[in-house]
Simulated scan of single mutants.
Amino acid sequence: MNSFLHIVAENEDGEYVAYCGLWYSQKTDYVYVEPVCTIPEYRQKGLGKAVVLEALKRGRSLGAEKAYVISDSSFYKSLGFQQHSHYTFYWYNI
């Protein structure tokens, strides 16, 4: 884990209220965005966007050229993410 790629936003009391983590290997040219979260009462304030964009900026500084997220959330689309692939997932109940 590279703590440089894990970004938090804090409130005035120093409590974490938003988070974005990126996973990156220099063997690839991309980062994987996961997880992203914001405490409900702090949503719609731009904090989620801020932590994601800062994380992406840091990923780029390490050599990543692309970012992937497995989500169809409008939040990611609003940041400029575009659909790349369609996946079919299967599960097995053990």
Score class of each variant (00 low, 15 high):
residue 2 N to F: 13
residue 3 S to D: 13
residue 4 F to V: 13
residue 5 L to H: 03
residue 5 L to I: 05
residue 6 H to Q: 15
residue 7 I to C: 08
residue 8 V to W: 11
residue 9 A to C: 14
residue 10 E to Q: 15
residue 11 N to A: 03
residue 12 E to W: 00
residue 12 E to S: 09
residue 15 E to D: 15
residue 18 A to C: 11
residue 20 C to I: 05
residue 20 C to Y: 02
residue 21 G to H: 07
residue 24 Y to W: 03
residue 25 S to Q: 07
residue 25 S to E: 10
residue 27 K to P: 00
residue 27 K to I: 11
residue 27 K to N: 13
residue 30 Y to F: 10
residue 33 V to H: 07
residue 35 P to S: 06
residue 37 C to S: 13
residue 37 C to Q: 05
residue 37 C to E: 09
residue 38 T to W: 01
residue 39 I to A: 11
residue 39 I to E: 15
residue 40 P to C: 02
residue 41 E to T: 02
residue 42 Y to K: 04
residue 44 Q to L: 02
residue 44 Q to T: 00
residue 46 G to V: 04
residue 46 G to H: 10
residue 46 G to R: 04
residue 47 L to R: 05
residue 48 G to D: 12
residue 50 A to I: 00
residue 51 V to K: 00
residue 52 V to L: 03
residue 52 V to C: 00
residue 54 E to M: 10
residue 56 L to G: 03
residue 56 L to R: 01
residue 58 R to P: 03
residue 58 R to N: 12
residue 58 R to G: 09
residue 61 S to K: 01
residue 62 L to V: 03
residue 62 L to Q: 10
residue 64 A to N: 03
residue 64 A to W: 04
residue 66 K to Y: 04
residue 67 A to P: 02
residue 67 A to W: 04
residue 67 A to M: 08
residue 69 V to A: 10
residue 69 V to R: 06
residue 70 I to F: 13
residue 71 S to Y: 05
residue 72 D to F: 12
residue 73 S to R: 09
residue 74 S to R: 14
residue 74 S to C: 04
residue 75 F to Y: 10
residue 76 Y to S: 04
residue 76 Y to N: 02
residue 76 Y to T: 04
residue 77 K to L: 15
residue 79 L to E: 10
residue 79 L to W: 13
residue 79 L to H: 13
residue 81 F to E: 12
residue 81 F to S: 08
residue 84 H to Q: 14
residue 85 S to V: 11
residue 85 S to D: 15
residue 85 S to P: 04
residue 87 Y to P: 00
residue 88 T to A: 15
residue 89 F to R: 12
residue 90 Y to G: 13
residue 90 Y to P: 07
residue 91 W to H: 14
